[in-house]
Amino acid sequence: MKIALILTFSIMFVVSHTTPTFNTQPQMNQSSIQLQNETRKSGGSCNYKVNIKTSCNSPPHTTDEISILFGDNNASEVYVPRLDDPDSGTTFEQCTTIEFEILGPCIGKICKMYLFRNGTDGWIPETVTAYHYDYPPVIFNYNVDIPKDAGYGYNNCNKKV
């Protein structure tokens, strides 16, 4: 009886401490990403800087909720569920660049970038520049209206077989 009880608690402990994986495909549905919360990778926290330039073709300002996901060639990812903050005045305005300091799990060289938009304004990013402490900056060119409630971006990572 004691062995069965110990075995049961051991299995419960292992299952409760597993880390979910997070795979991204182009045009991903934002609601599935929100279920994942922040992404995974053991090994501490790292600082990143992301500059997002809003297109001059974008509305003068937006109330759309903007989220970002970036990752490396090893499927390690950082997800920020909402970059904009209307309470603090941080919104995306036409022809401007906003810098974000992001603390997230440590990943390798950034080769994947997805933006997500929830709202009706039709926000249009021009470029996203991602800075990683160990690698040169990476620029992703958008200049397109991000589809509502869907991810849009680039996966320039080499797939491992």
Rank of each mutant, 00 (worst) to 15 (best):
R117D: 09
C46D: 10
T120L: 06
N57M: 08
Q27T: 08
Q94L: 00
N143M: 04
L7Y: 06
M12R: 01
C111N: 02
Q27H: 12
R40N: 10
T129F: 05
S67D: 10
L69E: 15
A4C: 08
C157E: 07
Y142Q: 05
R82W: 01
E65Q: 09
K2I: 11
I124P: 00
T19G: 00
R117M: 06
D87R: 13
P86K: 07
G71S: 06
D64S: 08
T96D: 14
Q30D: 08
S10C: 10
I110G: 15
I146W: 03
W123D: 00
R117I: 07
L103G: 11
T129M: 10
I107M: 03
P105I: 15
F116W: 01
N141T: 06
I3Q: 14
P147Q: 13
P147R: 11
T21D: 01
S55R: 05
T97K: 07
T8G: 08
F92T: 07
I52M: 14
M12D: 07
P60R: 04
N141F: 05
S31Y: 11
F13T: 11
V128E: 01
C111I: 06
K159S: 10
T62N: 09
I124Q: 07
P81Q: 05
F22W: 05
Q30T: 15
E77S: 09
P105R: 13
T54H: 01
T127H: 03
F92S: 00
I110L: 10
N143D: 11
T54I: 13
I3F: 04
S42G: 08
R117L: 09
I146N: 03
N141G: 02
S16I: 00
K2W: 08
S76N: 12
E99T: 15
Q30I: 15
Q25Y: 00
V128R: 06
L69D: 11
R117K: 15
F13M: 03
Y48C: 13
Y48E: 10
E65K: 15
S10Q: 00
D72Y: 04
E93Q: 15
S58L: 04
G153Q: 09
Q94A: 04
C46H: 11
N29H: 05
E65L: 05
V128A: 03
Y79V: 00
K49Y: 11
C157W: 01
T19Q: 06
W123Y: 09
Y135G: 02
Y152H: 13
S42C: 08
H132R: 11
T24M: 15
D72E: 05
Y131E: 04
Y131V: 04
P137Y: 12
I98P: 14
Q27A: 12
S10Y: 01
N155Q: 12
Y114L: 14
S58A: 12
E38K: 14
S45W: 15
I107A: 02
L103I: 11
P136Y: 14
C111V: 01
S16M: 09
N143C: 02
L115E: 04
P26N: 10
S16D: 00
M12L: 12
P86D: 09
Y114E: 09
S32A: 13
G43L: 11
T120G: 02
V14T: 10
T24W: 15
Y114V: 05
G71Y: 02
D121V: 02
L5S: 13
G71A: 07
Y154D: 13
I146A: 01
D84N: 07
V78Q: 13
P105E: 12
N73H: 06
Q30W: 09
P137T: 03
W123N: 00
Q34V: 10
P136G: 08
